[in-house]
């Protein structure tokens, strides 16, 4: 009797052959017209993690320790708290007035300033900022580097004011990207030549999607070094810097889908 044979896989899960092709939540089944309990709880867990990432706090003390002996400096944006930060992106793009003098005192001749910004994912910055910087430093032993700026309630454009105050020729902002349900700790890097207040987003290059299932630290650092060398040679960043030729750019970077 055929009942003795195990049922074919597509009867156990008719979606089995399709799930490998997408992360989308297909074939969840139905409880009446609604989501089955497990699928409901899975979704709410993912959303909870994403919210935790948005509202979390970066442990900059720990990151400063990991970066040593590299000097670092902590700064605030003009957004006093998370709720204001989310409502007022303009505040997150500007330095707190009280913090500018400490930065200006460090003005010097720098090839590169690194800014770590919490952006929209504390989880991404906590997990990936320090190891990514370590991978980068291995690749640029001869670059003159400014003290690393660790910025709280900060968006990408904060790097413009920081880079200008430091006198750096390039600024790279490492920022926590807006969390999705599947990945809550994705880090992005935005590179800007000749940073100064008022730079447009079209004047930056972006490397997105740095996380355990996305770009590795080595891939991201290779790409960043390639972009920095091109930027220094051509004295620009942005849409005119053709990123097509860059190695290992993440899919999101190619598609202008960088999520601040």
């Amino acid at each position: 009797m055929s009942a003795l044979k195990p049922p074919p896989a597509d009867l156990v899960d008719p979606y089995a052959g399709l799930r490998v092709a997408t992360r989308a939540r297909i074939g969840l089944g139905r409880s009446g017209d609604a989501l089955p309990t497990t699928a409901l709880l899975d979704f709410q867990t993912a959303h909870g993690r994403a919210r935790d990432a948005v509202h979390g706090v970066v442990d900059y003390e720990r990151i400063a320790g990991l970066l040593q002996p590299l000097p670092s400096l902590r700064l605030r944006s003009r957004a006093p708290d998370r709720a204001s930060y989310l409502r007022r992106p303009d505040w997150g793009r500007r330095l707190h007035a009280e913090d500018l003098p400490a930065l200006s005192a460090l003005h010097g001749d720098y090839d590169l300033a690194l800014v770590v910004a919490d952006g929209l994912s504390a989880a991404a910055v906590n997990a990936h900022a320090a190891p990514l910087i370590a991978a980068l430093l291995e690749r640029i032993p001869n670059w003159k580097l400014a003290p690393v700026v660790l910025a709280q309630q900060a968006r990408v454009a904060l790097g413009d004011e920081v880079g200008e105050a430091l006198g750096a020729r390039l600024v790279a902002v490492l920022v926590g990207e807006r969390p999705g349900l599947s990945i809550a700790d994705s880090l992005g890097i935005y590179l800007t030549w000749a940073p100064r207040l008022g730079r447009a987003d079209s004047e930056r290059n972006c490397i997105s999607n740095i996380h355990a299932d996305g770009l590795s630290y080595a891939q991201a650092a290779d790409t960043l070094v390639w972009l920095m060398a091109e930027a220094r040679q051509r004295r620009l960043t942005g849409v005119e810097l053709k990123v097509d030729a860059a190695p290992a750019l993440g899919e999101a970077a190619r598609n202008d889908l960088c999520l601040e």
Binding site: A34, L35, F43
Partner: peptide
């Protein structure tokens, strides 16, 4: 979208359910 989760645009819409 499947399960209310848009895996390309990273936002939540409605589920087919």
């Amino acid at each position: 979208v499947p399960g209310a989760d848009d895996v390309m645009l990273s936002y939540q819409s409605l589920s087919y359910h």
